[in-house]
Write a protein that binds this DNA or RNA. Structure first.
Lengths: 158, 158
DNA sequence: CTAGCTGCAAATATTTTGCATCGGA
DNA sequence: TCCGATGCAAAATATTTGCAGCTAG
């Protein structure tokens, strides 16, 4: 990384951390040292680190932090929309239907619904330079949110 | 499900099972009772079942099947391209960059690479009726394959 | 026959939780 | 002060592996 880029990123980083603090306050999440350090670590990384990897990195600056705090923090950050979880959480699910289609995945109950492209709709747009990373074998497109059933259940409780 | 649809599916199912057998032979994978039953179960389900759920269903017909056979079979089927794994396997990875972008995920080493849409490229096409399933919070688009590094490593070994 | 597959059991890996204590607002 | 967050330890969940016997090709 060139020095100039580094400076750019540092400027950017400060702003992102301020935005993070503001968002925490909005959501009544406390701005703790641990959360700041976890966010800082993630914001500086381009490696899409796992919880374990974040833990290892944060530990260098905060030797007493625990792995479960990292897990809890990443989850609450995800919920707050501050970080993005690549892939799905935990349990794998399978589909034997190989015709091109996508999925709606409920982030509350984990249910998976098929979404078939509409009749006559243009196919999924694949970036032209996609093969510069490697050989693509398949495509996974998920729309994640709260399914109707969970929304209805949440509505009743209130 | 209406009776007519059921019949359609059964016809379709037979053909799919034959295709599955042929594909197994092509790949030097043995066509065992367990594999057939696992594939049949998955092909008949629209529930995107987990390994555990497949196990429970298959067990009703083959009480002696073991969970690890289900895991092994699902993995080999995925590798053969017969079934699709929704989400990623095992370890979760995180990204603090919320600008719209996608990921190339290596199915061999698990590495995640960012893919930013090209300048001026049309945005990702979202199905119009997407909200009929629920409220979409975010979109996860992955291109899965073998990354260049793994391809190079595999090439050397040969 | 025999390489690949299965079942069993045990090991790993990953993530979550209860509880006492601590610390931000 | 007070309630949410943390650290520790232990549990729960999900997946993988070694090995001996079984079976499809």
């Amino acid at each position: 990384m060139c020095p100039h880029e580094q400076i750019e990123n540092n400027k950017d980083l400060k702003a992102r951390i301020e935005a993070f603090k503001a968002l925490c306050r909005n959501r009544a999440l406390r701005v703790t040292e641990q959360r700041l350090e976890i966010f800082r670590t993630l914001a500086q990384s381009k490696a899409h680190p796992s919880a374990e990897a974040v833990f290892a990195a944060v530990r260098k600056k905060m030797p007493n932090i625990s792995l479960d705090t990292v897990y809890r923090t990443l989850s609450s950050m995800e919920e707050a929309g501050v970080v993005f979880r690549v892939g799905l959480s935990t349990k794998a699910r399978f589909d034997a239907d190989l015709t091109p289609h996508y999925h709606f995945v409920c982030i509350n109950c984990g249910e998976v619904y098929d979404i078939f492209p509409q009749e006559g709709a243009p196919a999924l747009l694949v970036p032209q330079d996609i093969n510069r990373f490697g050989e693509v074998k398949n495509v996974n497109l998920q729309f994640r949110g709260i399914c109707n059933r969970c929304r209805a259940a949440a509505g009743k409780k209130k």
